[in-house]
């Protein structure tokens, strides 16, 4: 479904991504972890073309992302993305946030978009918040709206960039629960997170990144039992001891 082949990216002289390759099959859940600044966000933003890259190839469902002439907007509408800081549109209500892409990109009518949005709000448990503005919601609620907004586009895959890092601890689970449910329904997911409980529960594969490289890639059980690289061992013991 998502294939990343020998991708390299530079910011001027700085090598952010160094020859990264991996594969995410349909329905797979892949967790990406690693120290801050290792290039995790950059890598998943390359997958939906939010960041350009200079070398290598990424294909999503057969479409090559980096190639000239590819309709990136159409591709992006089919890949959901959830950001660390939610990035809800503050001037719109919750309902309008979820409906915007449906009407402007997918061409659904207002009533169609409304019905679909309410269905998704029900799913993330926020029907009663439909007419509020993002600023009136808690962080956990905002992130669930952001997930609903992404799902409203009927995506073939979902990208999550540290979806719980900006949340107060007591709100982390309400967001993770929604993600676990999605994973169990067979959504293809790439998730940058340090929530190792989540990784253990639903990930098929864990990728460990350091200094722009994919240092380790293993199925979940192996990764937690005996990580091969020293860096990953170190990293794991640090975050698991928390």
């Amino acid at each position: 479904m998502i294939e990343i082949k020998n991708v390299s990216k530079w910011y001027a002289d700085f090598h952010v991504l160094d020859d990264c390759s991996t594969f995410v099959g349909k329905g797979d859940v892949v967790v990406i972890c690693g120290p801050s600044g290792s290039g995790k966000s950059t890598l998943i933003k390359c997958v939906n073309g939010l960041e350009p890259f200079q070398k290598g190839e990424i294909t999503v469902d057969g479409t090559s992302v980096g190639q000239k002439g590819v309709n990136l907007n159409a591709l992006r509408s089919r890949i959901g993305m959830v950001f660390q800081n939610f990035e809800l549109f503050p001037h719109m209500t919750v309902l309008q946030n979820i409906a915007l892409g449906q009407t402007k990109v997918l061409g659904r009518t207002e009533p169609e978009a409304h019905d679909r949005s309410m269905l998704l709000l029900d799913r993330v448990g926020l029907v009663d918040q439909a007419d509020k503005h993002p600023a009136q919601l808690s962080g956990g609620q905002q992130q669930r709206v952001a997930i609903a907004r992404a799902l409203a586009m009927d995506p073939i895959a979902m990208l999550f960039d540290e979806p719980t890092s900006a949340l107060d601890p007591e709100m982390i689970n309400e967001v993770l629960d929604v993600m676990v449910e999605l994973a169990k329904e067979g959504m293809t997911m790439m998730v940058v997170t340090h929530e190792m409980g989540f990784a253990r529960k639903v990930a098929d594969k864990v990728i460990f990144m350091d200094e722009g490289r994919i240092v380790e890639e293993a199925n979940t059980k192996e990764f937690f039992e005996k990580p091969r690289s020293e860096r990953a061992q170190e990293f794991l013991s640090k975050i698991l001891s928390h």
């Binding site: 933003k45 089919r78 993305m81 950001f83 549109f89 402007k104 990109v105 907004r149 586009m153």
Partner: peptide, 24 residues
């Protein structure tokens, strides 16, 4: 991040400007 969130749901640059950036 707001433009990114807009383009991530498939809006074009012009649409993101019109519906997300300019109103704010």
């Amino acid at each position: 991040g707001q433009i990114m969130a807009g383009t991530a749901i498939g809006l074009s640059y012009i649409q993101a400007m019109r519906y997300i950036v300019l109103p704010q």
